[in-house]
């Protein structure tokens, strides 16, 4: 039943995400948006540095921004399924009475966003490597570290999304902003587009407490090892230490997700929030 819930939800999510238009327009949509987002940072960087793309800071910013797209895609994707099903399609109550596991259904719904997000990340990185001198050499990439880090990151984001989905169940207003709120906070504090050393000293501990910080560092190291060595923030930690920290944080995130979702789900059922529509 678990696998079936997940698989069916993934298929449903893919239909919702993609079948509003023809495949060509969908591909254009999936390319323009991420490239424009990356181009803002590229233009900002090139204005100030007069186009010096050889500085290690550039791949740091570029890759951090590219992989950060997964945060919006997976984490927000899981929690957005609650808003979509409850407010928009008004089908959440039917999902609750169907013989499925709701947490797996919600994670399954984010698979489509993971796939479109992966496409956006891939296009952005290829564009950077081809046209902006992002120094990725396929032969030098640590594929094992990359695959393990990516997988751990996706699991982490899905768990964080489940926590947000639980909280979303109890929110009447601004529930659609919750994912953006958390994603915005993580973007600032996780050093996605600038080294954590740039933050004021009193804000840096927030960055060190965020798993995304370690995840992005691992992805950068796996693709362009030289970038990681150029910045002192996490340079003292080895890859294995970073993996251990990330693994520990995933276990913690799983614990928080299970507890939070169970509590919020129970509260939502008790208060009659499962089929509530606010039109807000």
């Amino acid at each position: 039943m678990n696998l079936r819930s997940f698989r069916t939800a993934a298929w449903l999510g893919w239909k919702i995400e993609s079948n509003w238009t023809d495949p060509f327009l969908f591909a254009v949509y999936s390319i323009i948006k991420p490239l424009a987002g990356a181009a803002i940072l590229v233009v900002m960087y090139s204005i100030i540095t007069k186009g010096d793309f050889t500085n290690p800071l550039f791949p740091y910013i570029y890759l951090g921004n590219a992989f950060y797209m997964y945060v919006g895609a997976v984490m927000t994707g899981v929690s957005w399924a609650i808003i979509d099903d409850r407010e928009h399609y008004r089908t959440l109550k039917y999902m609750y009475v169907a013989p499925i596991r709701i947490p797996l259904y919600l994670i399954g719904r984010a698979v489509a966003r993971f796939l479109t997000g992966s496409f956006s990340v891939f296009i952005t990185i290829v564009f950077g490597a081809l046209f902006l001198h992002v120094p990725i050499e396929v032969a030098q990439v640590d594929w094992l570290l990359f695959s393990v880090s990516l997988l751990m990151g996706v699991v982490l984001l899905a768990l964080m999304g489940l926590t947000l989905a639980g909280i979303t169940l109890l929110l009447a207003r601004h529930s659609d902003y919750l994912g953006d709120a958390v994603a915005g906070g993580l973007y600032l504090f996780s050093g996605a587009v600038f080294p954590l050393d740039v933050l004021p000293a009193w804000l840096r501990p927030i960055g060190y407490a965020m798993p995304i910080t370690y995840w992005l560092e691992l992805l950068r190291r796996s693709l362009v090892g030289s970038v990681a060595q150029a910045f002192p923030t996490l340079a003292s930690l080895s890859n294995n230490q970073l993996l251990a920290i990330l693994g520990g944080m995933i276990v913690l995130a799983a614990f928080i997700a299970v507890i939070t979702f169970r509590y919020c789900d129970h509260q939502a059922r008790e208060r009659g929030y499962i089929d509530r529509t606010t039109n807000y």
């Binding site: 940072l41 960087y45 100030i48 080294p195």
Partner: peptide, 8 residues
């Protein structure tokens, strides 16, 4: 902070 990082 991006601008600060690149010394704008």
């Amino acid at each position: 902070f991006v601008y600060r990082a690149i010394g704008a």
